[in-house]
Design a protein around this nucleic acid. Sequence first.
DNA 1: CGTATCCTTGATTCGCTTCAACATTAGTGG
DNA 2: CCACTAATGTTGAAGCGAATCAAGGATACG
Lengths: 246, 246
Amino acid sequence: MKATVPITLPGLRKTCSQCNLFELCIPFGINNSDIPRLDELVCMQRKIKRQQPLYRTNDSFEAIYAIRTGSFKTDVLLEDGREQVTGFQMTGEILGLDGIGTEVHTCNAIALEDSEVCVISYTKLEELARVIEGLQHQFHKVMSREIVRDHGVMMLLGSMRAEERLAAFLLNMSQRFAARGFSATEFYLRMTREEIGSYLGLKLETVSRAFSHFQEEGLIFVQQKHIRILKSDGLRKLILHQASMR
Amino acid sequence: MKATVPITLPGLRKTCSQCNLFELCIPFGINNSDIPRLDELVCMQRKIKRQQPLYRTNDSFEAIYAIRTGSFKTDVLLEDGREQVTGFQMTGEILGLDGIGTEVHTCNAIALEDSEVCVISYTKLEELARVIEGLQHQFHKVMSREIVRDHGVMMLLGSMRAEERLAAFLLNMSQRFAARGFSATEFYLRMTREEIGSYLGLKLETVSRAFSHFQEEGLIFVQQKHIRILKSDGLRKLILHQASMR
DNA sequence: CGTATCCTTGATTCGCTTCAACATTAGTGG
DNA sequence: CCACTAATGTTGAAGCGAATCAAGGATACG
């Protein structure tokens, strides 16, 4: 199912220069004089229904995507059926960077809710990046931050125990919601326990138990996917205070 | 492992255009006509003694590094002392990409043996990348592959069991040695059991036991850091054949 | 409103960690 | 060059944290 719908309302809702996600996205840090040229970048927008893929492993790589509305997960599937969720992405974040190296995508990007992305032709991006210095630099920053983020996840998976991982996950989500102008203490998680578990290297039951335990401790209030953080520094302490296990 | 030492005659030993690690490194894929210009890239070389850092967390970011001889590990330290090794790097591979996003390095890069790196000024690289299209693209590829590699590690840490992780690690090392013209079946590991363990999210004892078990099974011959792979497809089967656990 | 999906909780099992002792290798200085 | 010592690696026994198995409950969606 391919739903590559271009902008609908006439004239309205231009591209980068009018986008409110500006400072989270690729165009950040570009000189005012160059901003109009950015609008060349986004050749179209595309709507993805919940549970549908934006791209799949082995799809040929042509564009990267900036999330305009909604959210996604990326995952890698092993031949024997095992799934590893490698990340959750929110508005303003970039998808598809995995494809540059091999010319094909190396993971699946699945919408967690009905979503909309800006399609950024990679060829065009490279072209513009050669002309607009700020764009080049910002793009490199986005890639670099992705690498750093991944190192954080490796830390999580490699040397934290179950409850520490979940605490780190919640704090990370909280911080990212806050960066988008939403509440840092109360939010709705679009992913299932199983997806959280896969991301954190845990089984869904363990995730569920950890949620319940945090609630018993008065750290959070949780009801299904609704989360309210009551003691964020309690969660923070959890991460650093516990003795090493692995 | 004896590194492929380049010509040492004085004056000689230029930079990229004469380097035998060419096709593993940044300059790969650049038009012949542009190759001479690459030599501007490497402003100097630097020697790092075993156990010494090439850079440390919070060092200000100025350059990226291509390994000319030797090998490194990168690691992230948590405040409570826990260490997570995020990667092992061999000749021709690039270090320092983590620093672009934040202008400071976010991990430590430590030499596993006496090593030598080419220092690539990041400013210069951006400049040249704007002029040499192939360089720009190759640089993006290097970053993208780093992201993909990290996803592989997340898969490893998140959904494989101990022996699968070690098998995947050995096959990966084997493949990388082979790509550098060394034996794929017999090599010397520069890192300790503890470092392997940290990388794989395991304790050193578990790594040691897994090595011993592989030997009992006739899959490898192991004596301390010397490894000989006897049945590489046996190791491969191990990764995919075992039932899921996590 | 019914049904599939998702979540919670309990009991049991198992893989890896932890603790401990010893073996081997590498590095140092007399 | 060898004795000495620290660092690294191996192996065994016991404990624990998370997985597995299982059942019931809540929620969302068509």
